[in-house]
C-alpha cells in the first residue's frame, strides 16, 4: 500500500476502513473465542439459573427466582460461603510470614546467600499442587504425622491433633498447606517492594537517630502498602477459586469432608453440577459467586486506582 497523492475524502475513508480491518484481524480469533466460549455460556448460565434444567441439559420450565431462594436459604450453601470466606482470610496469614522473611532476606548482604534464600523459599510454590496435598496428607496425619510427632517431642506428651480429620480443625490444616505453598510468592512480592524503597529514606532516618524498629514501622510498612493491598486482594480472590487441594483432601469429592467443613462455594457448585446434577441450582450458585467476586474486584480496581 503506497502513499496516495492528493487523497480525496472518500479515499481517506477507504484507507481508514482498510486500516481498521487490519487491526481487527489482530483481534479476530480472540474475539470469536470470547464470544463463543465466554459470553454465550455466561448468558446461558444466567438463563439456566432461572429455569429447571434436566440432567441432559434441556430446559424444562421457568421457575423465576426460586433457584436463588433455595440457594440462599440452604444452610449448606451458607456454610459453604462461610467456609470460603474463612479459608480465604486464614490464607492471608501467609502475607505477614512472607513479609517478615522478605525483610530478613533483604537485609542479607551476601549476594549469593540472598539468591539461595530467594530460590529456596520460593520452591514450595513451584511444586504441583496435587503433589503437595498428597505429601501433606501424611505430614498432617493424626497419628505418626510429622507435625504431631514434632509437637509431641517438644511438649513432652503425646499430641494427636486431627488436622485433617477433626471438622473443627480441618481449616487450620488446609491453611497450613496453603501458607506453606504461598509464603514464597508473598516473600518475593514483598522483596520487590522492599527493594524499591529508596535507601536515602533510611539514611535520613538514621541521621535523625531512628533505630531499626523505628525505621521499620514508619518507613518500611507504609511504603509497602501497595504490595500489601495487592497481596490482600489477590489472596481473597484466589480464595474464591480454591478447588484442587480441598477436592483432594475431601477424598476426591466436592463434599468438603469431613462434615462439610472444607466445602467452598465452588465445590458446592460442582456438587450440584456433577455429583448430584441440578443445573438450574448450580448456575444460580455460580451467578451468586460471580456477584460476590465482581464486587470484590470492583473494590480492588477502585482502591488501586486511587493510589
Amino acid at each position: 500500500m503506497g502513499k496516495r497523492s492528493g487523497p480525496g475524502k472518500r479515499g481517506k475513508a477507504i484507507y481508514k476502513w482498510k486500516k481498521s480491518l487490519v487491526w481487527l484481524s489482530f483481534l479476530l480469533p480472540t474475539f470469536v473465542c470470547l464470544l463463543v466460549l465466554t459470553y454465550i455460556p455466561t448468558f446461558k448460565a444466567v438463563n439456566f439459573s432461572f429455569h429447571e434444567v434436566s440432567v441432559i441439559g434441556e430446559i424444562q420450565r421457568s421457575v423465576g427466582l426460586q433457584n436463588y431462594k433455595v440457594m440462599l436459604s440452604s444452610s449448606s450453601f451458607r456454610k459453604a460461603i462461610g467456609n470460603t470466606l474463612m479459608l480465604a482470610v486464614m490464607s492471608l496469614s501467609a502475607i505477614p510470614v512472607g513479609f517478615v522473611i522478605a525483610c530478613g532476606v533483604n537485609s542479607v548482604i551476601n549476594k549469593k546467600a540472598q539468591t539461595i534464600f530467594r530460590l529456596g523459599f520460593y520452591m514450595p510454590n513451584i511444586i504441583t499442587g496435587v503433589s503437595i496435598v498428597l505429601i501433606f496428607q501424611y505430614i498432617l496425619q493424626v497419628d505418626n504425622g510429622l507435625i504431631n510427632l514434632a509437637l509431641s517431642n517438644l511438649l513432652g506428651r503425646k499430641i494427636e491433633i486431627g488436622w485433617l480429620s477433626d471438622p473443627s480443625l480441618t481449616k487450620v490444616g488446609a491453611t497450613i498447606i496453603q501458607v506453606w505453598t504461598t509464603l514464597g510468592y508473598n516473600m518475593l512480592i514483598c522483596l520487590a517492594g522492599l527493594q524499591s524503597i529508596p535507601t536515602e529514606l533510611y539514611e535520613a532516618a538514621m541521621m535523625d537517630g531512628g533505630g531499626a524498629l523505628h525505621r521499620w514501622r514508619y518507613i518500611t510498612i507504609p511504603l509497602m502498602r501497595n504490595n500489601f493491598i495487592f497481596l490482600f486482594i489477590t489472596g481473597i480472590i484466589n480464595g474464591f477459586s480454591r478447588f484442587t487441594d480441598l477436592y483432594i483432601l475431601s477424598g476426591n469429592s466436592s463434599s468438603g469432608k469431613p462434615a462439610g467443613s472444607l466445602q467452598t462455594i465452588l465445590m458446592y457448585i460442582y456438587q450440584y453440577s456433577f455429583e448430584n446434577p441440578s443445573y438450574g441450582l448450580s448456575c444460580a450458585g455460580a451467578v451468586i459467586l460471580f456477584v460476590i467476586v465482581f464486587t470484590i474486584t470492583s473494590i480492588n480496581l477502585k482502591v488501586t486506582k486511587t493510589i
Binding site: 486431627g162 480429620s165 477433626d166 471438622p167 473443627s168 469429592s253 463434599s255 469432608k257 469431613p258 462434615a259 462439610g260 456438587q271 455429583e275 448430584n276
Partner: peptide, 19 residues
C-alpha cells in the same frame, strides 16, 4: 437419593470427632 452418602458421612464424622 441425591447426596445421601455425603449427608450421612458428614453427620457421622462430626459425631465421631466429638463435635
Amino acid at each position: 437419593l441425591g447426596s445421601s452418602n455425603a449427608f450421612l458421612a458428614n453427620g457421622l464424622s462430626a459425631m465421631f470427632a466429638g463435635d
